[in-house]
């Protein structure tokens, strides 16, 4: 295994622990917004869509690449907006 792969594996393991640590003690009330927020964050997959579309040469990859960027963007934008809408409602009663 080369050092690059080893670095990535180290990063992955650390992130797994961090992910568990971050939401270990979340109140039930916030489960839905948290799930929705996490849902928006994995929309980062849209970067992959940008890479494939940027490198697309034929019609097949141009079409699928465009589709990938569209659905990825829907995931990101929709995810963050819907989470924000949910949390706006919580803001009212914390006055």
């Amino acid at each position: 295994m080369d050092t690059g792969t080893l670095h990535i594996i180290t990063l992955v393991v650390l992130m797994i622990f961090l992910g568990v640590e971050l939401i270990g003690h979340v109140p039930t009330v916030l489960h839905t917004p948290l799930m929705s927020g996490a849902n928006a964050i994995h929309g980062v997959v849209v970067l992959g869509g940008i890479f494939v579309l940027a490198g697309a040469h034929d019609v097949f990859s141009l079409i699928l690449g465009t589709l990938a960027v569209i659905v990825g963007t829907v995931n990101v934008v929709g995810g963050f907006v819907v989470t924000n809408r949910m949390l706006e409602m919580f803001k009212k009663d914390s006055r």
């Binding site: 990535i8 990063l11 992955v12 992130m15 797994i16 622990f17 961090l18 992910g19 568990v20 971050l22 939401i23 270990g24 979340v26 489960h31 948290l34 799930m35 996490a38 849902n39 964050i41 994995h42 980062v44 997959v45 970067l47 992959g48």
Partner: peptide
């Protein structure tokens, strides 16, 4: 992509 994905993967599993 790596960090966002893994974070959601592990946090989501715990959730």
């Amino acid at each position: 992509m790596l960090i966002g994905g893994i974070l959601v993967g592990s946090a989501g599993t715990l959730l």
